[in-house]
């Protein structure tokens, strides 16, 4: 009797080598990311030999080219937060309500058309949006609100809202559309109206997805560079009104990096600003990830 052979064959060795190849490919992007981070910290941390972390983060004056120079990025941080916050106030209702409409109210045919169009908004190069903000929106704001410059916090927030709406809308729509039809039917069968069903069943069941969408949209807004560089106005001061010109962190880095002497204090300070910016986007993504895992169980019955 020959019996069945259990020993490893060539096929299994092939399986193993395929797995190795995929592992290596996955590793490549992780290593790249790690190297970029390493570089960011190596080039950013030296500034803290000159300025304390506290003075850097909370210092109100950003005069990197003066003598003696001031490296306080508080105004830049506040500008980033203000621009992102105002843009969220615009983009969250628009994005989430559009998603609700598409998932719940729009006909299948309309949804088929509108969703890709909304997603296409995300494909607009940011420089085009910035250009639009500069040439069309800025003069408009200047006239209508009678402000000194149309290149200001509000303009930047508006343009960033345009950029985050597709993210918010698309991911929210997936979450809302993914609520099991069984839950919706159960609600309707109990004599709930469509609106009651949306408000009491569909939104609670998809809230984690909606939150994730919102945070990813905002993380896109806070890291966006070209738009704020073009339309935020560029003044490194803590904003006092909606129509003040501001200088968010990415704009500052992009505008000054070319003129900062290589490995000088200014150069280090800009990289340190990059570290702060990275901390913000990392925080957003971790929170988004946490929320989407925390409230994952939304489905119908699990037997």
């Amino acid at each position: 009797m020959k019996g069945i052979s259990y020993t490893a064959s060539g096929r299994q060795r092939k399986e193993r080598s395929i797995r190795l190849v995929f592992f290596a490919i996955a590793l490549a992007s992780i290593i790249t990311l790690g190297l970029i981070l390493l570089f960011l910290f190596m080039e950013g941390l030296p500034i803290f030999k000159k300025v304390s972390v506290q003075d850097f983060l909370l210092g109100k004056y950003w005069y990197p080219t003066d003598d003696p120079a001031d490296f306080g990025i508080f105004a830049l941080i506040m500008a980033s937060i203000a621009v992102t916050g105002v843009s969220a106030v615009i983009s969250i209702p628009l994005g989430v309500l559009t998603a609700l409409y598409l998932a719940e109210a729009a006909s299948a045919r309309l949804r088929q058309w509108v969703k890709p169009v909304v997603e296409l908004l995300a494909a607009l190069p940011s420089v085009v949006i910035g250009f639009f903000g500069m040439v069309i929106v800025a003069p408009f704001l200047q006239d209508v609100f009678n402000v000194a410059t149309g290149l200001n916090l509000f303009n930047a927030a508006l343009m960033l809202a345009f950029m985050s709406i597709p993210t918010i809308c698309s991911i929210s729509e997936d979450a809302i559309f993914g609520v099991p039809a069984e839950l919706k039917e159960a609600s309707l069968a109990l004599g709930a109206t469509h609106w009651e069903t949306i408000w009491r069943v569909i939104i609670p069941a998809s809230i984690s997805g909606i939150c994730t969408a919102v945070i990813l949209g905002m993380s896109r807004a806070i890291g966006e560079t070209m738009v704020v560089l073009m339309v935020a106005g560029g003044a490194a001061m803590v904003p006092g009104s909606l129509f003040d010109p501001v200088r968010p962190m990415p704009a500052s880095i992009a505008a000054e990096m070319a003129e900062a002497p290589f490995r000088g204090d200014h150069y280090y300070a800009l990289f340190a600003t990059g570290i702060v910016l990275f901390a913000f986007t990392l925080l957003f993504n971790v929170v988004a990830d946490y929320i989407s895992n925390r409230y994952r169980q939304v489905g119908a019955a699990t037997l």
Partner: peptide
């Protein structure tokens, strides 16, 4: 509201036992 329905797969809302039953009353 006058015609109740029970579905093929159990489909409780992702809410508490109490809120599941109270849902129809509330709406």
């Amino acid at each position: 509201r006058h015609i109740g329905m029970v579905f093929q797969k159990p489909n409780p809302f992702p809410k508490s036992v109490f809120e599941n039953v109270a849902y129809g009353l509330r709406v």
